[in-house]
């Protein structure tokens, strides 16, 4: 089972991408997509030695919803800051201590921070203990760290690292 289907999650995702790319739902394309979805993970197995496990799919869905909501809301606030006086901005570098351990979870957290407006993850410490984040307007660094930890890190930890 492990050898035949190394990444059970990747297969349907790749098949879905193939269907979107071809913009069709014909049986032939579904079959070809599933074949590609089986073949590509098998072929590139050496690049992905670890198997990804999602433990709480519902938490993941809620996390995605929270991120999408944050993108829209924070976009409005960044737009207002850009249109406002540049002198009123208070940019700052904030260091966020990390509790996540796995590579996938850390890179997902960094991407989420980059995707939500107003913050960019700038550098991961070599020992992976903290992430340097640049904020566009940070009146209170502690509040920013707390909101990142509570809104993004906690669900990611629950989904990818709970035992």
């Amino acid at each position: 089972m492990r050898r035949l289907l190394p990444h059970p999650l990747l297969t349907p995702i790749l098949a879905l991408i193939w269907l979107l790319l071809n913009n069709s739902l014909s049986p032939g394309h579904i079959l070809l997509g599933l074949l590609l979805g089986w073949f590509i993970p098998w072929f590139t197995l050496r690049f992905w030695p670890e198997r990804v496990r999602i433990r709480r799919p519902l938490t993941l869905l809620r996390f995605i919803a929270v991120v999408l909501y944050d993108i829209v809301v924070a976009n409005l606030s960044v737009a207002r800051r850009i249109l406002g006086r540049p002198a009123a901005l208070r940019p700052a570098f904030v260091s966020v201590p990390l509790e996540l351990k796995t590579e996938l979870a850390i890179s997902l957290l960094a991407n989420t921070i980059c995707l939500t407006p107003g913050t960019v993850s700038a550098r991961l410490a070599p020992d992976r203990r903290c992430l340097l984040v640049h904020g566009l307007h940070v009146p209170d660094a502690g509040a920013l760290v707390a909101s990142i930890k509570q809104r993004y890190e906690a669900p990611l930890k629950e989904v990818f690292e709970s035992c």
Partner: peptide, 21 residues
């Protein structure tokens, strides 16, 4: 934002975010 803001790090916020939305 890219054209107007003063330093590179704040300029980074404008395009990468607003353009995705």
């Amino acid at each position: 934002g890219l054209a107007r803001l003063k330093d590179f790090y704040t300029r980074l916020h404008g395009p990468t975010k607003a353009t995705t939305l």
